[in-house]
Design a protein around this nucleic acid. Structure first.
Lengths: 245, 245
DNA sequence: CGAAGACTTGACTTGAGTCAAAATTAGTGG
DNA sequence: CCACTAATTTTGACTCAAGTCAAGTCTTCG
């Protein structure tokens, strides 16, 4: 028994094993729960792994489960009838996936590289949200953040030039994705770019070729260094910020 | 005394006078409240009128009050440092204005034509939301709708051609704005276009000239008829839908 | 090693932007 | 009500940024 066990329900005094080492535990929606509630939540969850390019949620598909991203990157995609695609969001751990109490999904969610999810059946989560309002508040505040991001992105896609768009995306990723190294004053970064040129093009409303040309320009002008097309080093973030419009 | 007064608190059994004729009463957030709660809400609200082009909320400004749109159209705008503008949303009665519990606004809200608002001080609404969860749920479901709209718009701005963009906007407005006349099978509409060519351009990520040329094309091809540049008649909505991509 | 996919580069085209001017509409005060 | 001004919208001629089409090159992985 832990030192505090006398003050807590004896069956629920501990944080569940699966949650202890979980990176999403504090920053994700689970952070809204105390150990007893977390135990209840964890009794319904299941860890699942996905390889690159799998469909996690289907646009216009029925909602049967929700999930928290434990590791990896998820792209949200909308398509037109003739196949044109637009990425409408990028999500990283520990974001929540799924439209709470929604009738159906409004986007397709796909894994970008390997992704680990912590899934929970629809009913189980909805019951818990009803009983523990702080859980719903966490989800709501994520939705608000997504709305801000979508509107910011609308400015980028609607108003910026191709060079500005690519710089904006690199800036976005450098603050959100797996950052392998960042120097003290946060003015330089090295990161792995999870998106293909095609994804980037679909995110920015450009073509693959235009994106590639902009990368080349950024490379030759020394703003970025690229290894194997995917590992990007930005020696001077402020330079990138100027270019982002 | 009304016939049901014996079942309700004697001081609060009636719907407040100002709310009785209010168009937003049922569809807006107020629809979540019963007569007693509505009376409490109404004791804090104040009706205000705005002429065209006034700033209702300032981007990065402090939140001091919330509001429901009673009449008119509100545009949500984001600007870049060099003055480029992007409309990131359009709101109609009875939409709710303001980011609940937010630190500050993330967009500028401006009246498009005459607008009537029903405003309520920040603290008063936040207290009521805390006490009456259904109120918060209404606001949350509006935020979800705004997120969907923003993402749909991202597809339009990122992927569609100029002709498709203009058709998409006309379609959007024809379903939301003041519709003066619509025939039975809903295949034709007449409406007043609240947005200027400049607004339309900023919404679509185009220039004024390009928007104007697209209007001309739609006019000469008989898809729309325009009177005084602002009154639009669409005799065959399905034709417009085809053009919208 | 070889094939498939991803990325880059080049030559050319085009859709939308820019610049300029005319036409239309709205607003104002006499 | 009308004349005059200011603002908005339309149209035209020209330019250019980004798209298209077509090879190449580089990566990855069986």
């Amino acid at each position: 028994m832990g030192p505090n066990s006398d003050r807590l329900d004896i069956h629920n005094s501990e944080v569940p094993l699966v949650c202890r080492s979980c990176e999403a535990r504090h920053r994700g929606i689970c952070g809204a729960l105390d150990p007893r509630e977390l135990t209840e939540l964890a009794s319904h969850t299941r860890r699942v792994h996905h390889e690159h390019g799998e469909e996690l949620l289907e646009e216009a598909g029925e909602i049967t489960a929700y999930a928290t991203i434990i590791r990896g990157v998820v792209r949200l995609v909308k398509s037109l009838a003739d196949g044109r695609r637009q990425l409408v969001g990028l999500q990283f751990a520990p974001d929540f996936l799924g439209r709470l109490f929604g009738k159906q999904n409004s986007v397709t969610a796909e894994s970008v590289g390997p992704v680990d999810l912590c899934t929970i059946p629809r009913r189980a989560l909805e019951r818990m949200v009803t009983n523990y309002p702080t859980l719903g508040q966490r989800i709501t505040s994520q939705v608000l953040r997504e709305l801000d991001e979508a509107r910011d992105w609308l400015v980028t896609v609607g108003q910026k030039s191709a060079p500005e768009k690519v710089a904006s995306l690199l800036l976005l990723i450098s603050t959100q994705a797996d950052v392998s190294a960042t120097d003290d004053d946060k003015n330089s970064v090295v990161f792995y770019l999870p998106l293909s040129r095609a994804d980037i093009a679909d995110y920015l409303g450009l073509t693959i070729e235009t994106v590639s040309r902009q990368f080349t320009k950024l490379r030759t002008s020394g703003v970025i260094r690229v290894v194997n097309g995917r590992h990007v080093e930005v020696p001077d973030l402020s330079r990138l910020r100027e270019l982002s419009g």
